[in-house]
Design a protein around this nucleic acid. Structure first.
Lengths: 209, 209, 209, 209
DNA sequence: GATGAATGAGATTTCATTCAT
DNA sequence: TATGAATGAAATCTCATTCAT
């Protein structure tokens, strides 16, 4: 009776929800929106299908939760790494972001790659959710690129174009850098990609590198 | 007495098949493999559902035909453009390929982008078809990149990495360069992307450009 | 111009029909009425499905033709064998019929067994056709059994019961005497069955045998 | 706290399953495997088509359950009757089995006759199930026949042949002894068939009867 | 809160039959 | 006569969602 009764219960509820979201993320990545079914989600979470409806109002709300969780988690990691190099050059900052993004997609959480990096075919009702997710993710990179340009550190003519090309390179990494590669080999490839992508932003730095 | 049996009748059949494939491509792009249904394909082609089975043994064969048609068409266009600049520098050649690829994805046949450029979630039975398609497409770019490297015209350290980054940039274009933009604006963006991507292959050319 | 033009044409037509009926018999036996489809009949006869409709008004007419052909052929064989022993005892006559019936079901035309001997599940519209077929077939055996009883040669108390039991024994033979057995073994089994079944009609003869 | 989980709920589930199997048996008998459809099974059981899939994974599993249920029930009845005459002669034992088998096919459960006694056309995947069912059924009769032979009580030369002829006679009964006959008439026919069939096993007994 | 049961809507596929050539 | 094309009707099976306990 010390704490409001909702606390313990609510925590338990949140843990349950997170567990479901975790399962759903994996299945969604594997089979896409239409291919994922609640039966499988329930079974893998070891609960009954009907129980899902105690936590989410339906398939769409569950999927929205997956997207939100992914976005939040990825962005948190990026911000955190960015914080560590706040004092370094903008080039170093953007390289840090690139490296962390690739690491997430090919090592830390490769299961989010299919959903997070490429446009799956979502029902129309998800367009806004998706767009919002992408915007929040892009904003982190954009801040650094624009600052770098303003500081004369980058020499690309157009920030928008550069950012899109950057995203393309990073996203593509999840397609060809296998999570199962040996760690040293993966680290090599990460560096190679970061180097290659950096050239799009700064020629000087690249020739120096 | 009659013409070789493969003439009028067979041509008619092929035309019909192509028509169905066209419809299916659009729906497949919009909704993905699981989201596309034969009811819609039939209705949009203005035939009965059962009629589809005269031309394709089932959903999977139809989808395979879509993939094959897309691959063939895209590669043909690339080869054709490449042929026109056979005598120019390798940089010019790869720039031609890049420009044509972006043009296809954002102007000529934007409906192929979701299927051709990004990995949708396919049933396992399609893994081989998809892999083969990607390999044939990549081969065209690879030829030029490796020749350029051999000729000392490109200065990227690793052809594989460069190619993957290239594909990433090109694929991404379909996500942000809207087919509906005014033609001049599109042309500007194409050039900007080609310039940006070129820097990944050759620093000299880029600073000159 | 000598013979009416219909003769040659009609003969050709009849040959075609017989060929189709032959194919249909096999497929009908294998898969039953519902399991047999016209596509397969056409393909195995090497004609187009639509062509079947030049010879039969539909599936049901074709199936009726199969039943009629089977009945006629089986009965003809029975009558023919019966003719050969017209002068012998009734016991010898019924044994001849039994033996010929078993031979048909397990050697001469084993493909008719499933349709002819056992009650497949036919649509209601076939009840009459089937009943008629069975009646005509039964009549041949009945004649002999009744004559034998009248002559005091058989000692079974009831002709109807005896006939039904007889049919049961004969039909069953197609289930366990494999057409693929070596001929001598088959002949042995035929004799054994005929001996066993004969005991139901005449105890004296049996103990003598 | 609650009863073992397998009690009330599971019993309810089993009752439901049995109800479905009962309906399916009737329809299967009437129309055969291909002719039976789940729509009808559902409607006659007064449940939705989709509900069937809660109890059986598909048509085949349902049909397999029907076969298993029939086999078990028929064999149980036979064993039970056999138990009652354990002390009597082998002839009396086999006559008991025969009579009970006929009773089942023409009175107790005539709906199993078309499936249980005669070979319908099953898909290949059912061959094993069917064969197993027949083997278990035959074994009951075989035990008695072989014992009777060993005891010198029967004088048929070959147990296999005699058993097959026996099955033929019994099975045939379902084709001509109408369940709708008045009970006394049916009882007369049962006796007549049993008497007739007995002659195949033992001449002495028959002439005595 | 948890769950087994139930179901309507819809997806893929099959097939007898018709039609135009 | 022969046939490719076309199709409506139906069959099996799936799945998100609701409901009673």
């Amino acid at each position: 009776m010390t704490q409001p009764a909702t606390t313990r219960v609510a925590r338990r509820r949140d843990r349950r929800k997170a567990e479901i979201v975790r399962t759903a993320t994996a299945l969604l990545s594997e089979h896409g929106y239409q291919g994922m079914n609640l039966e499988d989600v329930a079974e893998r979470t070891d609960i009954a299908k009907a129980t899902l409806y105690h936590y989410f109002s339906g398939k769409d709300e569950l999927v929205a939760a997956v997207i939100e969780a992914m976005t939040t988690e990825v962005n948190q990691r990026l911000e955190q790494e960015l914080g560590r190099v706040r004092d370094r050059s903008h080039l170093e900052q953007i390289r840090t972001l690139m490296r962390e993004q690739i690491r997430i997609l090919t090592d830390t959480a490769p299961e989010v790659a299919p959903l997070f990096s490429w446009p799956t075919t979502w029902p129309d009702s998800f367009q806004d959710t998706i767009k919002d997710s992408r915007r929040r993710h892009d904003a982190i990179f954009r801040r650094v690129v624009e600052a770098g340009l303003a500081a004369g550190e980058f020499d690309c003519p157009d920030a928008d174009v550069a950012l899109q090309c950057l995203h393309g390179v990073l996203n593509q990494s999840s397609l060809w850098i296998r999570p199962s590669l040996p760690p040293e080999r993966k680290a090599q490839l990460w560096d190679a990609v970061v180097d290659t992508a950096s050239r799009m932003l700064s020629l000087r730095a690249a020739s120096a590198g």
